[in-house]
Nucleic acid binder design. Structure first.
Length: 411
RNA sequence: GGACUGGUAGUUCAGCUGGUUAGAAUGCCGCCCUGUCACGGCGGAGGUCGCGAGUUCGAGUCUCGUCCAGUCCG
């Protein structure tokens, strides 16, 4: 390829280039390291929205941002080059659970880490596998030590502990790795939510401890983000947020939401947790969400998002546009020869008509999910960029209120 | 001209010895998908069972006629 997506993994160079030498966050000093930096660049006056810049060994990311989900190391239906050049994603997410089972974290370690394996040279965040075990594994048993689960691929039995989750993510080499947590379902009894949350907190302690004693297999600096749990119970959420805040991590995540609870409840929990988590560190709302969810959550102080909606729903024929939501499989688009997104930046926005994309879907052509995925991710990137612009311009709240109504419309 | 086989949803077919609102697959139409799913999940519409007559309490199912398609024989 004319342009290399593989970054030379020269830690010393990167450290000196950034000029910051600090201890790692667990306080141990196995070697001098560069720690993740988050700089807030502007704040909205009417909401908790802010813009910032997150610096990693694989470059900087402007926040608030959205991370496309590349479960198995790639965003389905997209070339890495397309994700990089066309969609313009700043950072991608991948899954520890999936990569651990296939091809195996050892294989990826041999390749030189996930960046070298898939050719993505920008930052990567890996989910720890807690959520996937919760939602995917056929059989699973949570114990104090960790989780015993059966693979959804071949039924093989595995044990995942907090230490193991850190080790695997060290091997994968993501820039941001997640603590091993238990995601509780909705609804969830308060008693179970409390027990689960406390265990997640104990697991976090073990994750941090192990993280402090280990290093990335590939010479990059990694940051470990802890995760707030507590289901939909304000007292639990408060307690969890305080515990997570006290770990003084370079970034903090909110988990256990968008699992079926009403959106209002999700916002209330997010708002409460954001008021407790440190304001000078990035806040990551895991698994969210729809364009409207994202804008509302930015207003509450969230900086980072990931969700399968633009990709998975795209593959199933749902398009997100600046005017609202389209089910491109509907008959009414059959002879609509207008472009997918007039005024869109991507070649697929103006290069393909609704009628053509509908035809591709109805005919079962592979190009259909490819176009829809690229379009939807392009739209999400546009939405985030626009949100950052509006925050900087001091007009975020008004813009957000207008957009939320528009973006939820069914066309 | 004769014999045989078959004619059941848009399509390909299933319906045992006649018995409740005729099924499946696929297609069509719509909905869903929030740290898992590239061909996924759910729902809906759609048939006077070629046509006509008969037997029977009751026929997609039996009988006769007729039309159509296919195969074979002359």
């Amino acid at each position: 390829m004319g342009q290399s997506y593989l970054l030379s993994p020269n830690k010393i160079y990167l450290c000196q280039k950034n000029g910051i030498f600090v201890k790692n966050q667990a306080g141990h000093e196995p070697g001098i390291r560069f720690i993740m930096e988050f700089t807030i660049t502007s704040k909205d006056s009417k909401s908790s929205a802010r813009t910032g810049i997150l610096t990693t060994d694989h470059g900087q990311v402007e926040s608030p941002f959205f991370m496309p989900v590349g479960t198995c190391g790639a965003v389905k239906a997209l070339h890495i080059k397309e994700l990089h050049d066309d969609v313009g994603a700043q950072i991608m997410l991948s899954n520890t659970y999936h990569l651990f089972l296939r091809p195996g974290s050892g294989t990826i370690a041999k390749a030189g880490g996930l960046h070298r394996f898939n050719g993505w040279d920008r930052p990567i965040l890996t989910d720890s596998g807690g959520y996937q075990i919760y939602s995917l594994a056929d059989i699973r048993k949570f114990t104090e030590n960790g989780v015993v689960f059966q693979s959804h691929i071949d039924g093989s039995k595995h044990t995942f502990t907090p230490e193991h989750a850190v080790d695997v993510q060290r091997q994968l080499g993501a820039d941001i790795i997640m603590a091993f947590d238990e995601c509780t379902p909705y609804p969830c009894e308060e008693d179970y939510a409390r027990k689960s949350m406390k265990r997640t907190h104990r697991w976090l302690k073990r994750c941090l401890e192990h993280f402090g004693h280990t290093e990335c297999s590939h010479g990059y600096t990694q940051a470990l983000f802890p995760i707030v749990q507590g289901s939909v119970y304000p007292d639990l959420r408060k307690e969890s947020a305080e515990t997570i805040a006290s770990s003084d991590a370079p970034g903090n995540a909110i988990g256990g939401l968008s699992v079926g609870e009403p959106a209002k409840m999700m916002y209330e929990m997010t708002d409460l947790v954001c008021s407790i988590l440190p304001a000078d560190k990035p806040r990551y709302l895991m698994g969210v969400g729809t364009p409207a969810n994202i804008l509302e959550s930015i207003a509450l102080g969230i900086d980072m998002f990931d969700c399968v909606i633009p990709t998975r729903n795209g593959r199933n024929g749902m398009l997100f546009t600046r005017d609202g939501i389209i089910n491109i499989k509907n008959e009414k688009w059959n002879e609509d020869f207008a472009p997918l997104e007039p005024g869109g930046d991507l070649f697929c926005d103006t290069g393909y008509s609704k009628a053509f994309l509908r035809h591709m879907f109805i005919a079962g052509e592979m190009l259909a999910p490819m176009i829809a995925t690229m379009h939807n991710l392009g739209f999400y990137m546009w939405l985030m960029k626009e949100a950052r612009k509006q925050i900087i311009a001091g007009n975020f709240s008004a813009w957000k209120n207008k957009m939320v109504v528009k973006l939820m419309q069914r066309l």
